[in-house]
Amino acid sequence: MLWERDSLSIPFPSFPTYSSGVTEENRGLKMRKKNNMTGLLFAGPFLIGFLLFTLYPTGASLFYSFTNFNLFKPLKWIGLENYKWIIEEKEVLISIRNTMYMVIIATPVSLAVGLFMAMLLNTKVRGQSIFRTLFYIPSIVPVIASSLVWMWVLNPQSGMINSILKIFGVNGPNWLLDAAWTKPSLILMLGWGSGGIMIIFLAALQEVPRSLYEAADIDGSGELGKFYHVTLPSISPIILFQLIMSLITYFQFFAQAFMLSSLTASGPDQSMSGPENSLLFYAILLYREAFVDFSMGHASAMAWVLFLITGIVTWLVFKTSKKWVTYGGE
């Protein structure tokens, strides 16, 4: 397991004990106590931060989710009302549908694009570092700037893509202004920004032992066979890691959609939902409930539902991963 692998394997320090006398045992005990103290000291800042900025707000959020908390009115316990609201509210359903679209489509697309580019870079070609840089840069362009660039690139009349399509006599779609094309536009944008995923895959690919490929050559495997039987199994722990990180990211998908929906709308549009609600993602609705409508109770309940879904999906992925993730012997 990627992160469980080493956590237990480091032996307890065996301090030299030459005799099993009482004094030595005492020393061992003292040593252990001292270790516990040092451990606590080193972990101290993180633990304080965890209590203050993670554990407390997580608990508070659970509590708020059962109240009508809204910053202005006195707080009242309303039981499961907020959860009932989640089930009954039409916009929640829309936002879940939109979010599932991103999770189901954007995750494999980002992983596939990232892996494809990493494999291209893993060949011995000249100028590798220049190509690597070109692939990576889009992923570090700040979200606001990349959203702006794509809004302009996808501009129906004067944007780059439709202009290029026009040369071939194709009339491009309305992209961000057409409900059917908003999410594909986002996928395009996210695929362009998958350099972060690429870089980690590249590091993993460079670790795959040459000997495995040589053995496959001797067995007469083709390129495709090598990909399925050597590359994929060798990097499967990394695929698992990136899969989970991507799933988490897309469940919480926010910034790009926020930019695109608040900027494509003309005038002060507070709905932040894009054409025909096509960009109303779960995290967008949650933000709107919390900081536009100040229904902190709704938002907190939504956050907990998101937490539970993320937890369940991560757990399911871990469970199934035993079937497809292989850990090479060390």
Binding site: N36, G39, F53, I248, Q252, M296, A299, S300
Partner: peptide, 25 residues
């Protein structure tokens, strides 16, 4: 030390916790 594995579990758990959960409080 005794808290080593618990600490690591906490760190992993914070990675999985959505930002939205702590955002409002």
């Amino acid at each position: 030390w005794r808290g080593k594995n618990i600490l690591f579990a906490i760190i992993i758990a914070t990675m999985l916790l959505p930002y939205q959960v702590t955002m409002v409080p």
